[in-house]
Amino acid sequence: TTVHIGNVTYHFDNPEEAVKWAKEMAEKLGLRIEIHGDTIRVE
């Protein structure tokens, strides 16, 4: 599972961890997340 924040990509072996981490980052940055299969974007 990959999480994209701007130009930076993070890789997670556990999809649930990826979603949890992306949600925390989105809250901190005042952004929202979009999930497309195994790709998560924070925008």
Rank of each mutant, 00 (worst) to 15 (best):
N7I: 08
H11W: 14
A18H: 00
N7C: 08
E16A: 13
E17I: 10
V42Q: 01
P15K: 15
E43A: 08
T39W: 05
E24T: 09
V19K: 08
A22I: 03
P15I: 11
A22D: 00
D13R: 07
T1E: 02
R41Y: 15
T9W: 08
D38Y: 04
A26Y: 03
P15Q: 14
I35F: 12
K23H: 11
L31D: 06
D13C: 06
E17L: 12
W21S: 01
K23A: 10
T2S: 09
K23M: 14
Y10E: 04
I5V: 10
A18V: 01
F12E: 00
G37Q: 06
L29R: 04
N14Q: 08
G6P: 02
T39V: 14
E16M: 11
E16N: 12
H11M: 10
E27D: 14
T2Q: 09
K28N: 09
T39Y: 07
A22G: 04
N7W: 08
D13V: 10
N14C: 03
A22N: 00
V3L: 03
H11D: 06
A26V: 02
L29V: 05
V8F: 13
E43Y: 15
I5P: 00
M25I: 13
A22L: 02
V8R: 14
E34F: 11
L31I: 05
E43T: 13
N14K: 10
E43F: 15
R41D: 04
K23V: 12
I35T: 06
I5Y: 06
N14T: 10
D13E: 13
Y10L: 07
A18I: 01
I33S: 02
W21P: 00
E27R: 06
T2R: 08
E27K: 07
T1D: 02
E24Y: 13
G6A: 10
D38P: 05
G37C: 03
D13T: 13
E34W: 08
M25V: 12
K20Y: 08
E43P: 06
V19C: 10
V42G: 02
R41N: 08
T2W: 13
I33T: 04
K23E: 12
L31S: 13
E27F: 08
A26K: 02
Y10C: 04
E43W: 13
G37L: 04
E27H: 09
I35A: 05
V3Y: 01
Y10T: 05
N7M: 10
V8E: 14
E34P: 02
D13W: 09
V8T: 14
K20W: 08
E27G: 07
H4N: 07
E43H: 11
V3W: 01
R32I: 15
M25S: 04
A18D: 00
G30M: 06
E16I: 12
R41L: 14
L29Y: 11
R32V: 15
V19Q: 07
T2Y: 11
E17N: 08
E34M: 05
R32L: 15
R41M: 12
Y10M: 07
T9R: 09
W21M: 04
G6C: 03
D38I: 04
M25Y: 09
K20I: 11
H36W: 11
E27W: 06
D38H: 11
L29S: 07
V19D: 03
I33L: 14
G37N: 06
K23L: 14
E17D: 11
M25E: 09
A22P: 00
R41A: 05
V19M: 15
T9F: 09
T1H: 06
T39N: 07
A18M: 02
H36F: 14
V8G: 09
I33D: 03
K20V: 10
E34G: 03
E34R: 06
V3D: 01
T1G: 06
W21T: 02
P15C: 04
K20D: 09
H11P: 05
G6Y: 10
K28V: 09
I40T: 01
T1W: 11
N14Y: 08
A26P: 00
M25R: 04
G30P: 03
P15L: 14
T39C: 05
W21K: 02
A18Y: 01
T1V: 14
V19R: 08
H36S: 11
A26T: 03
I5E: 01
D13G: 09
H36Q: 14
A26N: 02
G30L: 05
E27S: 07
W21C: 03
G37F: 04
E24F: 13
T39D: 08
K23D: 05
T9P: 06
T1P: 05
T2V: 11
W21F: 14
K23Y: 13
K28T: 09
G6T: 05
T9A: 12
H4G: 04
M25N: 03
R41E: 05
V19A: 07
V3G: 01
E16T: 11
M25A: 06
I5G: 01
V19L: 15
H36K: 11
T39Q: 11
T39M: 08
K23F: 11
R32C: 05
T1Y: 10
E24R: 08
V8H: 14
D38E: 07
H4I: 15
G37R: 04
R32K: 15
V3C: 02
G30D: 11
Y10K: 08
R32Y: 08
N7Q: 12
E16G: 08
T1K: 06
H36L: 13
D13K: 09
E17S: 08
T9G: 06
V42A: 04
N7K: 13
V19W: 13
K23R: 13
E43I: 15
L31V: 10
Y10P: 00
G37W: 03
G30F: 06
A26G: 06
A26L: 02
A18E: 00
K23Q: 14
I33R: 00
T1I: 12
V3H: 00
V3R: 00
I40S: 01
V3A: 02
H4F: 14
D38M: 06
A18Q: 00
E43V: 15
D13N: 11
L29I: 05
I40Q: 01
I40W: 02
Y10D: 01
A22M: 01
E34H: 09
N14W: 06
N14V: 09
R41P: 01
A26C: 03
N14S: 12
K28R: 12
I35G: 03
V42I: 14
D38T: 12
K20S: 12
V42E: 02
G30Q: 08
P15G: 12
A18P: 00
K28A: 14
A22S: 04
R41C: 04
E27L: 09
T9L: 11
L29A: 07
R32G: 15
L31N: 06
H11G: 05
L29P: 03
V8L: 13
I33M: 10
D13P: 09
V19N: 06
M25Q: 13
I40E: 01
T39P: 02
V42F: 07
I35H: 07
T39R: 05
T39E: 12
G30E: 07
G6K: 09
A22Q: 00
L29N: 11
G6S: 08
G30S: 06
H11C: 05
T2F: 11
H11Y: 14
T9M: 12
K23P: 00
Y10N: 03
I5S: 03
K23N: 12
E34L: 05
D13L: 11
E16S: 12
V42C: 03
I33Y: 14
K28F: 08
G30I: 02
K20C: 03
I5W: 06
N7T: 11
G30W: 04
E17Y: 11
G6W: 09
F12I: 02
Y10G: 02
P15E: 10
H36M: 13
E24N: 08
I35R: 03
V19G: 05
E34C: 03
H36P: 01
N7G: 14
G30N: 14
E43G: 15
V8Y: 12
I40K: 00
Y10A: 05
R32T: 15
H11F: 14
N7A: 13
E16W: 10
D38W: 03
H11A: 07
P15H: 15
D13F: 09
L29D: 08
T39I: 12
L31M: 15
I5T: 03
K20N: 12
E24H: 11
F12V: 01
N14F: 08
E27A: 09
R32N: 15
L29Q: 07
E43L: 14
E17A: 11
D38V: 05
T1L: 07
T2N: 09
I5R: 02
G37H: 05
I33A: 06
L31H: 13
G37A: 05
I33G: 02
P15F: 15
E34Q: 06
E16R: 09
V19S: 06
I40P: 01
K28H: 10
Y10R: 09
L31T: 13
E43K: 06
L31C: 04
E27I: 07
H11Q: 10
E43D: 10
T9Q: 12
E27C: 04
E17V: 11
I35Y: 13
A26Q: 03
Y10H: 07
K28W: 09
E27T: 07
A26I: 02
L29H: 13
V8K: 15
H4R: 07
T39F: 06
I33E: 03
I35L: 06
E43C: 02
